[in-house]
Amino acid sequence: MSVIDQIFEKAKQNPQKVAFPEALNEKMMEAAYQAGENGYIYPVLIGNPEEIGKTIQERGYNADVFTIVDIKEETYKHSLIERYIALPETRLKEKALNRRMADALQYAMVMQAVGDVDVTFAGIDYTTGDVLLAGQMIIGLKPGIATISSIGLCDIPGFNGSEGSLLAVGDSAVCTNPNAEQLASIAISACDTVKSLLDWQPRCAMVSYSTLGSGQGELIDKVTEAVKIANELRPDLDIDGEFQLDAAISPAVAAKKVKRESAVAGKANVIIWPDLNVGNVAVKLIQQFGKADAYGPMLQGFNKVICDCSRGAPVSELVGNIVISAVRAAGSK
């Protein structure tokens, strides 16, 4: 059974409520319908119920698969506002929140913040910036997390790592040039993500062009400082470095280059790139030359699971990302 098949099976065992603020988008509705009809999620469509209902009928879908939330229905809206502003450390007051909830994306995130849905899934009609800004304002960041980032899961043919052919990598999509504190946050978030998604015991390597001082310079200093910060913030996690990539994933290379005890060296299942240049190029190399399947990017760092999908993604890929997001949400509870 492939990794994606395993994730789909986990989703079916514990379906989560996923909010779709782009309810009328043809691809998004089809993806939500497929994921819901197959029992992976409970899809919740946000918007105008008359328009949504008419569209469901025109496309021949079974309306019973969906829950439809009327964005203009005042009783439920006021209930959401009251519960949201009662949450600790909320930034928005009643008037400001009421204005924002005219927007379906922000309405969905308020539902998520108070626990009425488990995931907000968007990104076709809304931009990445829309999703990130709404998420930071309404959902907020996890304690100790300094930046939003992403992680991907690579299934690499011929790779025989500590998790077989699988390797989690990040950040390859969001944070351009993280400082040491941000890099530490990315590592911590990545560990939490793979733990919730795959039940792994994370072994996280922070990589550079140096292994434990074999090179010198400010690029290396950033990584070593990030390792220190991450270990101070989350001593429960196995985060180590700085390692070159081969020392991180190859036991034979680690035995030569790492002359101290390490729970990570040679057996890392999570790799953290030092910046987006490295991350983007590395993922393209893995895909082009390693013929790997790469799942993601998965946004991380928020208090709850938010997904910003690729607007050019086919429906099949959207369904996969919906299911991954649902499993992450279930695993984080």
Rank of each mutant, 00 (worst) to 15 (best):
D5A: 15
W273S: 12
P202C: 10
I239N: 08
Q13S: 15
A35K: 10
D155F: 04
S149Q: 12
D70W: 02
A265Q: 00
N277A: 14
L318M: 14
D308C: 02
K222P: 05
R328G: 08
P178S: 07
T147C: 15
A263I: 02
K12W: 01
E242Q: 00
T75H: 03
F121S: 03
A63E: 14
L24E: 14
A230P: 06
G215L: 12
I271L: 03
G115N: 00
Q13E: 15
P88H: 06
I71M: 05
V131P: 11
D308V: 09
P88G: 06
K222S: 04
P178H: 11
S316Q: 15
L245G: 07
S250I: 13
E50T: 09
A31G: 06
D240L: 09
D125M: 06
L233A: 14
G320M: 13
P157L: 07
V65F: 00
F243E: 03
S2G: 11
G39D: 13
K17G: 00
V281F: 11
L80A: 09
A263S: 13
Y126R: 01
I188V: 13
V223R: 00
G53C: 09
R91Q: 15
I229L: 08
F289Y: 15
E94L: 10
I249S: 11
P314I: 09
A329P: 12
G241D: 04
F243H: 03
G279T: 04
A230R: 05
A122N: 09
N231A: 00
I145E: 09
W273E: 09
R260G: 03
C175D: 10
F302T: 03
E26S: 05
G279A: 13
M206W: 06
D125C: 05
K72Y: 09
I148E: 04
D125H: 09
A252C: 06
I85Q: 11
I220Y: 04
V327E: 07
R234Y: 07
L80V: 12
P297Y: 01
I271H: 04
L153G: 02
N160K: 15
N160Y: 12
